[in-house]
């Protein structure tokens, strides 16, 4: 019943908006605003046919590879930096500075250093995505409860056991908040990396359609990106509710 209700909430507004869109564009007056019907046709034709293998797969593969690298690297470095106080105070100001630099500005540099290829694109996404994960991990690791730490010491937790059963779970809520941010950043950078000097990808294809004034096709690229964003968010929620189920319960029991 509850699931049905939340599904209804999820669907109602989009359905209304699509109806409104259909209604206002039914005479097809504006060339730049496609009608729902043709847009769906364009979507199916462009992205579910050859475009799926040529553009969608490379884009998504690069995005996921970059996210995996960012998360792995961000957590590892974050644990190291967060665990050692002097390293943390030494690096923190610099990390904040590096983070503040918009990663898109690195594109020209990466093009020069790495060239036009997948490595460059993945590197760009990693350079943007790693910061939220890294900085949140540092914060999470550095702020582990003192009693939890003392308990760990009393019962002899050390090394990998300590990491697995104390440090990572204790920092997990923060780490997940970081990963959430990096997902959004990652999608933006994925598209951006394909809009400059690229030969494939959703961003590349969409720009291409715009140049060719293929209006419904161009819009269909935007829809696809939205859908990918939603899919990533759903996937994230599923993983999060599995890993952080205890945290949700703890928060609710504290109310």
């Amino acid at each position: 019943m509850n699931a049905l209700k939340s599904l209804l909430h999820f669907v109602v507004l989009p359905v209304l908006l699509i109806a409104l869109w259909w209604f206002t564009t039914r005479d097809g007056a504006n060339f730049f605003v496609p009608q729902p019907g043709p847009l769906v046709d364009a979507f199916v034709e462009v992205w579910l046919g050859e475009g799926f293998r040529n553009d969608v797969v490379p884009s998504v593969a690069r995005l996921f590879a970059a996210l995996a690298i960012s998360i792995a690297l961000g957590i590892s470095l974050g644990v190291l930096i967060g665990s050692v106080e002097w390293v943390r105070s030494l690096l923190s100001p610099m990390l904040e500075f590096v983070r503040a630099v918009p990663s898109t500005i690195i594109i020209p540099v990466l093009l020069l250093v790495i060239g036009i290829n997948d490595t460059m694109k993945v590197t760009l996404i990693v350079l943007g995505c790693i910061w939220p994960v890294l900085l949140n991990t540092v914060k999470g690791v550095a702020s582990i409860d003192g009693v939890q730490v003392d308990t760990g010491r009393v019962y002899g937790l050390s090394g990998l056991v300590r990491l697995r059963y104390l440090v990572l779970p204790a920092a997990a809520p923060q780490i997940f908040a970081g990963i959430r941010q990096s997902l959004a950043v990652g999608l933006v950078l994925m598209v951006t990396s394909e809009m400059f000097a690229s030969t494939d990808g959703i961003g590349y294809a969409t720009i291409n359609f715009q140049n060719r004034i293929a209006i419904p096709e161009m819009w269909s690229g935007i829809v696809l990106l939205g859908l990918i964003g939603v899919a990533m968010s759903v996937l994230f929620q599923i993983v999060q509710s599995r890993v952080l189920g205890w945290y949700v319960g703890l928060k609710e029991s504290a109310k």
């Binding site: 009693v147 939890q148 003392d150 308990t151 009393v154 204790a170 205890w246």
Partner: peptide
């Protein structure tokens, strides 16, 4: 050791 702060001494993720 049994601490006063049982809520923080037990690991809530286990």
């Amino acid at each position: 050791v049994v601490f006063q702060e049982y809520g923080r001494s037990l690991y809530p993720w286990m």
